[in-house]
């Protein structure tokens, strides 16, 4: 694909500007639409500028892991389907899709906002399995943050299905019981372009990005805490740059959380 010369983007960013006129720490316009998929137990469609992802939550009843016999199971998977970009290929998830799903998973899991013990049906035998599947529809960069927004919004939207007397899922009767989620964990991604830091890099900027840091934050009793971090890109970050991004992530996380809460 022929795209804008990365050097040009570096020059623009080094002047404190961005190709689309955004501020250095501005996100693109975000829209969150919950309940976008009728067949899912919970869902959300998220637009982050021209990036669009859709997330569906499905529940099933399964066996717990042996080391956590009284806890439900969370599984996050992301697919970068060829529909979303000429760069994506069909086949099993590539490393970027795997990374995105694991980073999204980690922020939710590690924040402990979901009490998985509450998703136990019969200890050691039956628990709720929570499948969070993310489909990318349009890739214009920063898929991790878009996927993270969609995943948490879909989890908030989710309602557990009813159970029949034999313990099987009753697909005809959804319960009105949602998941208890005590906080909003979100991934926020910042990129280093030359010596500058920008938030929410889009696809045109991605070519010029030297390094990336995704920081997972969540709110607890009025405080903001970190729950995950993941560095990407083929250049390093100094400790000072890391610290700056941690601070930015905390304030940006607050803004994004409001959008999820109001969605």
């Amino acid at each position: 694909m022929i795209s804008t010369d990365p050097q040009l983007i570096k020059n623009i960013v080094s002047n404190g500007e961005r190709l689309d006129g955004r501020g250095m720490y501005d996100y693109r316009k975000i829209t969150i639409e919950k309940g976008a998929v009728a067949t899912a137990d919970g869902s959300a469609r998220v637009k982050l500028g021209n990036t669009e992802v859709i997330c569906g939550v499905k529940f099933s009843v399964g066996e717990p892991f042996s080391d956590t016999p009284d806890e439900g199971v969370l599984m996050v998977a992301a697919e970068f389907v060829p529909l979303a970009s000429p760069e994506f290929e069909s086949g099993p998830p590539g490393e970027e899709a795997v990374e995105a799903s694991r980073v999204v998973d980690r922020a939710i899991r590690e924040s402990k906002v979901i009490d998985f013990k509450k998703l136990c049906i019969t200890p050691g035998e039956k628990v709720w399995m929570v499948f969070v599947d993310i489909d990318v529809l349009d890739n214009d960069g920063n898929l991790i943050d878009a996927a993270s927004l969609a995943a948490i919004a879909a989890l908030f939207d989710a309602k557990l299905p009813g159970l029949k007397e034999d313990g099987k899922i009753d697909y005809d009767n959804k319960s009105d019981q949602g998941l208890q989620i005590n906080g909003i964990p979100l991934s926020t991604t910042f990129a280093k372009v030359g010596d500058s830091i920008i938030a929410d890099p889009d696809l045109s900027e991605a070519e010029a990005v030297d390094a990336r840091l995704t920081v997972g934050t969540f709110d607890k009793d009025g405080d903001v805490l970190l729950c995950s971090m993941q560095k990407g890109g083929s250049v390093g970050l100094t400790v000072e740059e890391l610290e700056k991004i941690i601070d930015l992530a905390i304030s940006k996380g607050k803004e994004l959380r409001k959008m999820v809460a109001n969605a």
């Binding site: 924040s111 995950s228 971090m229 390093g236 100094t238």
Partner: peptide
Amino acid sequence: AYYPKKKHVTLLQMDGIVTREEAKEIVK
């Protein structure tokens, strides 16, 4: 992971709950 000559952190991952100050302390 650290590239000493450049003073660059080339790998960083974290999972678990920390405050901002703790995060910075652990990195250091």
